[in-house]
Nucleic acid binder design. Sequence first.
DNA 1: GTGAATGCAAACTCTTTGCATGACT
DNA 2: AGTCATGCAAAGAGTTTGCATTCAC
Lengths: 139, 139
Amino acid sequence: MTTAWNEAALGAGRQPGRARRAVVELLGRQSCCLTALEIFERLRAAGSGVGLASVYRTLDQLSRDGFLQKIELGDGTTRYEPTERGGHHHHHVVCETCGKVEPFEDDRLEQALRRVERQTGYAVAGHEVVLRGSCTDCS
Amino acid sequence: MTTAWNEAALGAGRQPGRARRAVVELLGRQSCCLTALEIFERLRAAGSGVGLASVYRTLDQLSRDGFLQKIELGDGTTRYEPTERGGHHHHHVVCETCGKVEPFEDDRLEQALRRVERQTGYAVAGHEVVLRGSCTDCS
DNA sequence: GTGAATGCAAACTCTTTGCATGACT
DNA sequence: AGTCATGCAAAGAGTTTGCATTCAC
């Protein structure tokens, strides 16, 4: 699969090597967030010889170039996911019991956020919402 | 200053010692979030002999007992602040350039969040919103 | 061939844990 | 004395950096 996101993410910056290609290819297929270690392990499991450091370097680069959003869900690790594909972006609900993470999106929430963003006086570039609780299986 | 929050936070669980007293007293005076290291350094600067480990242990305990909210703003460290004092709770805007953190609150945002929380099907216990951008000084 | 990207290992930072000491009952 | 919190130091986990090598053009 070669999407517009994949091509843009590969093209940005300098020449992509094996690691960058592998990470972009994996993330391009992803619908929700992954940790650096998860990405590393999946690539290794798939037979790729990428190093963990290269995964981190690629993630850092793609984040700075705006292709990835960093997400912190409260467990001390950072997750990454492709930014707004198709103009939509989502947020996350985390089950504090089993650790499950699910995405959701809501227009009214986005509207409320935009309103607040204007009021802050900041030039707000992005936002992040995390809901915590118990999923239907755990509660 | 001895507020209801302070008393409750001290009373919960077992007997509070020097460290717990110092941390609760400092956080009780705080309006916005602090990292464990900031708390440790302030207490040390104030002449207290608390250990960093005790600060972490106290923060962990107070969080589990619901007196503190953990907050992750994207720099890899966890911040802590007293939960909903006076029934209000706030969220945070972070300046990605200078690192400044400011609180804000907005009723319409809270309403939108409550709506979404119901839709998820989760028993949502809490939520967190972070806005990122440039503050007026930096943009 | 040149310069950038890569992989490994070491370094770093934040956080947690083990254990002996100290405080309060 | 007995019990629990504390402080220090060591251990862990996640992430970053240094450096020699490999890869792409």
